[in-house]
């Protein structure tokens, strides 16, 4: 796309070509399944014939990132899974979109813990958020319609270099996904000092038994 940037202005021909390209893409999005937790069950229900949300939008589940346009991340993303999701995202070809399904994928939900990623958008750009715990299939369908609107409003051959585009996101190495190891951790001395403070406080309160840790 870089060759086209800033070459074309809005005109009858360019807008028509753009809308044609967008129309083709928004009617045939191939989603990549990433059911990382319980929302994945809801995603399966969405795919089957009772709700039939996906195929009516021309979506067909693919199981390879190289064949997919849309990554649907349904469920809690753990810090152990985060590098995998980032790697899968990087393997998808442009243009690519991400739907975060469920409160956990959006913000971590109640899992504000050491092991859970606090929001999918910390590792990949997210286009549509579908809230819910889990979201009902109708909400899922609404999210897909919203994504179609995102695609429909895209400028393809009229693209301006300043426009935000998922392809223009700075790429980070998969292995640079921040793990606890990349943040300065309190050392053992810090812990010990912290404990000393606590112990001193309790001693003054007269609550401490003998033989507690002091080093």
């Amino acid at each position: 796309m870089g060759l086209l940037e800033n070459k074309f202005k809005d005109s009858l021909i360019t807008t028509t070509v753009d809308s044609l390209i967008n129309w083709g893409q928004e009617k045939a999005m191939y989603p990549l399944l990433l059911g990382t937790a319980c929302c994945g069950i809801e995603m399966m229900a969405v795919g089957y014939s009772r709700f039939d949300v996906l195929e009516r939008f021309g979506m067909l589940f693919r199981f390879s990132p190289r064949q997919s346009d849309v990554m649907i991340v349904a469920g809690t993303v753990t810090k152990k899974m985060a590098p995998v999701i980032k790697a899968v995202y990087d393997q998808m070809s442009e243009p690519k979109y991400v739907i975060a399904v469920g409160s956990c994928a959006i913000s971590g939900n109640i899992y504000k813990s050491y092991s859970t990623l606090q929001g999918l958008d910390r590792i990949v750009p997210v286009d549509v958020y579908v809230p819910g715990c889990p979201p009902i299939p109708e909400a899922f369908a609404y999210g897909i319609i919203e994504l179609q609107k995102v695609i429909a409003s895209r400028r393809v051959i009229r693209k301006q270099p300043t426009e935000a585009d998922p392809g223009a996101q700075p790429r980070t190495n998969v292995h640079e996904i921040l793990r606890p190891g990349h943040i300065k951790l309190p050392t053992a001395q810090d812990y010990a000092a912290h404990l000393d403070d606590e112990i001193t406080g309790q001693e003054q309160g007269g609550l401490l038994e003998s033989g507690r840790r002091r080093d």
Binding site: Y114, L117, Q118, G181, I183
Partner: peptide, 19 residues
């Protein structure tokens, strides 16, 4: 495998180290 610290120790922050 490269995790630092032991999360169920009482002196590990309950919310972990955010990324």
């Amino acid at each position: 495998e490269d995790w630092e610290g032991f999360p169920l120790r009482k002196d590990y922050p309950i919310e972990g180290y955010d990324i």
